[in-house]
Deep mutational scan, measured.
Amino acid sequence: MSDQEAKPSTEDLGDKKEGEYIKLKVIGQDSSEIHFKVKMTTHLKKLKESYCQRQGVPMNSLRFLFEGQRIADNHTPKELGMEEEDVIEVYQEQTGGHSTV
């Protein structure tokens, strides 16, 4: 019986991991920090939209990076291997420009 009891508790931990929340720091170019608590399985588009709304800027005017890689709207913290207190960097999107060649 103890084996049966242990097995469901392991499964519960697996389920808990799926719905687990982590805190992420979003740091802007001006070094301002906003902290977000997100589920591991939530699409990061929600975090990006919330950040842009707080900053009063359109979402397409900023780019969000985690460990140097651009974050897509459909990425989740779990897919990117994010952990508690990880940092997302935000930069002004640069458009235009010309070749110097």
Rank of each mutant, 00 (worst) to 15 (best):
residue 96 G to H: 08
residue 75 H to C: 11
residue 38 V to H: 00
residue 17 K to T: 15
residue 11 E to C: 08
residue 19 G to D: 11
residue 10 T to D: 05
residue 25 K to G: 02
residue 78 K to R: 15
residue 67 E to N: 13
residue 68 G to H: 00
residue 77 P to E: 05
residue 95 T to A: 12
residue 86 D to A: 11
residue 52 C to S: 10
residue 75 H to Y: 07
residue 95 T to E: 03
residue 47 L to G: 04
residue 86 D to E: 10
residue 67 E to Y: 06
residue 50 S to K: 05
residue 21 Y to S: 11
residue 37 K to I: 02
residue 76 T to Y: 01
residue 97 G to I: 00
residue 86 D to K: 04
residue 11 E to H: 09
residue 74 N to L: 13
residue 70 R to F: 05
residue 74 N to V: 11
residue 49 E to C: 00
residue 96 G to C: 05
residue 57 V to W: 09
residue 85 E to F: 15
residue 43 H to L: 12
residue 44 L to Q: 04
residue 56 G to L: 06
residue 8 P to D: 01
residue 93 E to Q: 11
residue 39 K to W: 09
residue 7 K to Q: 10
residue 14 G to T: 07
residue 42 T to F: 01
residue 63 R to N: 08
residue 94 Q to G: 01
residue 70 R to G: 12
residue 13 L to I: 10
residue 40 M to E: 12
residue 21 Y to G: 07
residue 21 Y to C: 13
residue 46 K to D: 06
residue 33 E to A: 06
residue 56 G to I: 05
residue 65 L to Q: 01
residue 59 M to P: 11
residue 3 D to Y: 08
residue 42 T to M: 07
residue 42 T to S: 09
residue 90 V to A: 14
residue 38 V to I: 15
residue 88 I to S: 04
residue 58 P to I: 02
residue 18 E to A: 11
residue 35 H to I: 10
residue 50 S to A: 13
residue 62 L to T: 03
residue 97 G to R: 04
residue 9 S to N: 15
residue 71 I to W: 02
residue 36 F to V: 04
residue 93 E to M: 10
residue 70 R to P: 11
residue 41 T to L: 05
residue 55 Q to G: 05
residue 53 Q to E: 15
residue 10 T to Q: 11
residue 86 D to L: 01
residue 71 I to K: 07
residue 40 M to Q: 03
residue 52 C to Y: 02
residue 51 Y to L: 01
residue 27 I to S: 04
residue 55 Q to N: 09
residue 19 G to R: 14
residue 76 T to M: 00
residue 95 T to L: 13
residue 2 S to A: 13
residue 24 L to P: 02
residue 5 E to S: 12
residue 34 I to T: 09
residue 16 K to D: 07
residue 80 L to F: 01
residue 63 R to I: 09
residue 2 S to Q: 11
residue 81 G to P: 02
residue 84 E to A: 09
residue 54 R to S: 05
residue 97 G to M: 00
residue 45 K to Q: 12
residue 55 Q to Y: 14
residue 15 D to N: 13
residue 41 T to P: 07
residue 8 P to R: 12
residue 84 E to R: 13
